[in-house]
Design a protein around this nucleic acid. Structure first.
Lengths: 213, 213
DNA sequence: TTCCACACTGCGGATGACCACAATTGAGAC
DNA sequence: GTCTCAATTGTGGTCATCCGCAGTGTGGAA
C-alpha cells in the first residue's frame, strides 16, 4: 500500500525538476525516477497513482518500459511525453492502454489536468478492484463441494434437484448451502447472485409508497 | 436492420474505388459515400458494420462528422484515415472513442485487418446490446407497482417485509411477484437477479459429480 | 354504460428453504 | 494414535414461497 504518486520517469533532470515543481504547485504528490530501469526495479504491483513516462530516454525507451509494465500486470495509468512522436506511435500506445500521449512542448496546466484525471481514474479502479478482490477471496474460502453447490444454487435449481445431480441427500445440500451463505457473508441466494454479478440500476423507486389500501 | 457494411466516406473517388476493390478482395461488404453530409443524411442508428472516414474532405471534415455521429449515439466503430494527421489529432480522436487512426500511405492489408476487427467488435457489441435491449423491453412491460415490488425482492427482502413497506397484504405482494417472474420470463428471484446483473464466471464445474454417497 | 387493466385481499394447501440437534466416515496433520 | 476438517446423513419443526379459487374497488377506454 502507498499514497497515490505521480511517478515521473525521465532521464533529463531539468525536466524532472520542472515537473516535480509543477505538480507540487497543484498539490499532486510525485516521485522521480531517472531511468526506466530504475523505475522498473522499484515498481510494485500495489502502487497507487499514475506514471508520467518520457519516450526518448538513453537506455530503455518509454515504450519498452510500458511493454514491460503491461506484462507485469501494471494497472497504473501511463501518460506518455514525447518531443518527437509520430502518429503510429501515439495510436499504438493508446490502443495498448496508455492513458494519454502528449507532445512537447505541452501546456503545463493541460499536463497536470491529465495527471489529475489519471489519478482519479486509478483511484476508481483501485476501489472497484478492491471489492472484486474481496469477493474472489471469499470465494477461495469455499471448499470445492461448496462451490459446486453454489453454482447449482445460482443456476436457480431446487435443493432437491441439486441433491439429485450430485448424488447426495437434500440435507447435505442444505448444509453446504448454508455454509456458502455464511462464508460469502450473505443471507439469501438473491444477495449471492448480486454479489457475484454486480450490475444495473433499478428502474423505479424502491421503498416509496404512493397509495395505500 | 441491415447487413454489416464497411462504410467508406471519402470525397476522393479514386480512393473510394480503391478501397471498395480492396475490401471486395477480402470479402468485406462495403458502401461508398462521397461526403460526410451525404453519409450523415443516410445514417441510421440501427446500422451494423463500421465506418472508414477520411479526415480531410472538402466540406465537413471527418472529425466533425465523427462528432455529429457521437451526438447521435452512433455505436459503429470509426476508423480514421488521414494523409497529414498530427499526434494531438490522433490522440483526441482515439480518446473520443475512435476505433483506429491510420496515416496514409497505409498498408492495404493492415487496413483490411483493422476493418475486420472493427466489424467483429461491432458484431459483439450488437449482440450484447440486443440481450440488454430485450431485458429493458421486458422491464417496460411491468406495471409501476410490479417494478416496485421487484426492486424490493431484489433487495433480498421477505414478502412479509415488502408487504409492510408498501402497506399492502402479503398476498398482493405474492401476486405482483408472480407477475414479475412471468413477465420477465424467469422462475425464481435468483434468475431475476442474474438477468438484471449479468456477470462473472463460475469457479468450479457445475454438474460434474465426482464421488457418490 | 360496459369492459378491461391494475391493484388489492383472504383462505388453505403444497412445496421449498432453513435450522437445531445428533452422528458417521475418511483424509491429512501433529 | 489422536485431532481436525470436509463431507455426509437423519429427524422434526418453523418459516417462506407459490398457487388456485374467489372476490372487491377504481379509473380509463370504447
Amino acid at each position: 500500500m502507498s499514497t497515490p504518486l505521480a511517478h515521473i520517469v525521465d532521464d533529463d533532470e531539468a525536466i524532472r525538476d520542472a515537473l516535480t515543481w509543477l505538480f507540487r504547485t497543484r498539490e499532486v504528490a510525485s516521485a522521480e525516477w531517472s531511468s526506466a530501469e530504475e523505475f522498473l526495479a522499484a515498481w510494485q504491483p500495489d502502487w497507487h497513482g499514475c506514471i508520467v513516462l518520457d519516450i526518448r530516454m538513453r537506455e530503455m525507451s518509454g515504450l519498452e518500459c510500458f511493454d514491460v509494465l503491461q506484462e507485469r500486470g501494471n494497472t497504473l495509468p501511463v501518460i506518455f511525453l514525447t518531443g518527437h512522436g509520430d502518429v503510429p506511435m501515439a495510436v499504438g500506445a493508446l490502443k495498448k492502454g496508455a492513458f494519454d500521449f502528449l507532445e512537447k512542448p505541452f501546456d503545463d496546466n493541460a499536463l497536470v489536468d491529465v495527471v489529475i484525471r489519471a489519478l482519479a481514474s486509478d483511484a476508481k479502479r483501485q476501489a472497484s478492484q478492491a471489492t472484486q478482490a474481496s469477493v474472489t477471496h471469499h470465494l477461495a474460502l469455499l471448499t470445492p463441494r461448496e462451490q459446486e453447490v453454489m453454482n447449482l444454487v445460482l443456476a436457480g435449481k431446487f435443493n432437491k434437484v441439486i441433491a439429485d445431480e450430485l448424488n447426495i441427500s437434500m440435507r447435505t445440500v442444505e448444509v453446504h448451502r448454508a455454509r456458502v451463505f455464511e462464508k460469502m457473508g450473505v443471507r439469501s441466494a438473491v444477495e449471492l447472485a448480486q454479489l457475484l454479478a454486480p450490475g444495473r440500476d433499478k428502474g423505479a423507486g424502491g421503498t416509496g409508497n404512493s397509495g395505500e389500501h
